[in-house]
Amino acid sequence: MTRVLHIITGLGRGGAERQLLDVVRHTAGLVDHEVAVLTPPGPVAAALRDHGVPVHEVGMRGNRDLAALPRLVRLIRAGGYDVVHTHLYRACVFGRIAARMAGVRTIVATEHSLGHGHIEGRATTAAVRMLYTATERLGTLTVAVSPTVAERLCGWGVPPDRITVIPNGLDADAFAFHAERRARVRARLGLDPDAFVFGAVGRLVPTKRFDLLIRAFAYLDDGLLLIVGDGPQRAALQRLADGCGAAGRTMFAGDTGHVPDMLSAMDVLAAPSEQETFGLSVIEGLAAGLPVLYTACPALDDLPSGMVPPQARHVPTGLGAWRAALALCLSQGPTRWPPPEAVQHYDIRVHAKALAELYETHRHRPGNRAQAAGAPRQYERAENAGL
């Protein structure tokens, strides 16, 4: 069995952390996973340990804590890992250096959060870009979570033959709608069982454009707005809701860790972000049977022709467009849809199996070079992967 050490910056409830947990769950018996977390562990660490996965705490105190590097090298050497797999910017930089110093031959990175002009919600300065691309050369290959991310990596100078596209995945069953759960969650949140609830899920950072959503929602005469997530913009968004008269109808639920529950309480999912690396919350909303309004979603853009479901509506950025879209949903009333084919297209089992096969292939490849030069390699669909 392939022994893999995942190195990740933190283990909060972000998309990258949840993807790591889901991959571990769905490759049990195929891969022997361990996880090293650079910063103090969050709630996903406990979930990993509940699944029998050792979690090593590196205790890194900041981006320039170079003392963490030798600790990481010692951990990797002691573990005898076949593969080191890094996630998120800081872990990719330190993890690839440490893995190379420790003599690991197969070093994989997943790029979860590379946008235009930002990475993980932070500006991509010249120094950030230089450090990223320099350490990328120390690895074997980089996994992009969408063709959109692969294009951005190529734009940064990463050779296409060093990129493999394996999209994010989700467990559709976990998001399936149940009326009993909806009633229970609304009661717990103190929401009127008959209220029309607009919802949004994500980290509260400027790139998600929750400010635009709040402004558009404030023009409606009815309905509630439920915002799920946390981040540095929370206080500013609360002030905005106060200032535009939406405070009494806007709830900030925080980082609950129960996204399927929160989706069950909503009637529409709104995703106004102008750029995304994948758009996982949109696919999760569709899995929960919700109509979805979105501005950017590579996961839908990359679907085969004709597979984008009618309940997913593209809304151009801008206050007027979002006001009109929200008002139309409110006038139509609550509607629940069966999960579309697009949800099954991103089955987590396919994602996990593709990663397990990637580990096995590259640990045995002479020199551990990426595939022959050309376009980034695409993962195999479920119908071709034996699932």
Rank of each mutant, 00 (worst) to 15 (best):
F278G: 04
T27Q: 09
E17C: 02
V143C: 02
P54V: 11
L387Y: 11
P309Y: 05
A327T: 03
G202F: 13
L280N: 14
M130A: 15
G285R: 12
A288F: 02
E34H: 08
R25Q: 07
I8D: 06
T335V: 15
A46N: 04
H112E: 12
A134E: 06
D211A: 14
G306V: 05
I76Y: 03
P309H: 08
V165N: 07
D22A: 15
V108M: 10
F217M: 09
L20Y: 00
A91V: 09
G155S: 10
D211V: 04
A324V: 02
Y132T: 07
T142W: 01
G103H: 12
D82I: 08
L191Y: 07
L69V: 12
F175D: 01
E57S: 11
V93E: 03
L269K: 10
L30S: 13
P376V: 08
A385S: 05
A296Y: 03
A67W: 13
T39H: 13
K353M: 12
R363I: 15
R122W: 06
A144K: 06
R18C: 14
V149C: 05
V350C: 11
I227R: 07
R188Q: 14
D161N: 11
D222K: 13
Y294S: 12
T335Y: 02
I227T: 06
A299N: 02
A218C: 02
G80S: 00
A183H: 12
R25F: 00
L224E: 15
A98K: 12
D222E: 15
R129S: 14
P298S: 07
G199D: 08
G254F: 13
G374A: 06
H351M: 15
L303D: 04
T277V: 03
V35N: 07
G333R: 04
P41M: 08
V31P: 00
D171G: 04
E383S: 14
S264K: 00
R105C: 04
L226S: 03
T164K: 05
L75Y: 09
L170D: 08
G320M: 03
G243W: 02
R162S: 07
V55A: 09
R186M: 11
D221Y: 01
L300K: 02
E111C: 08
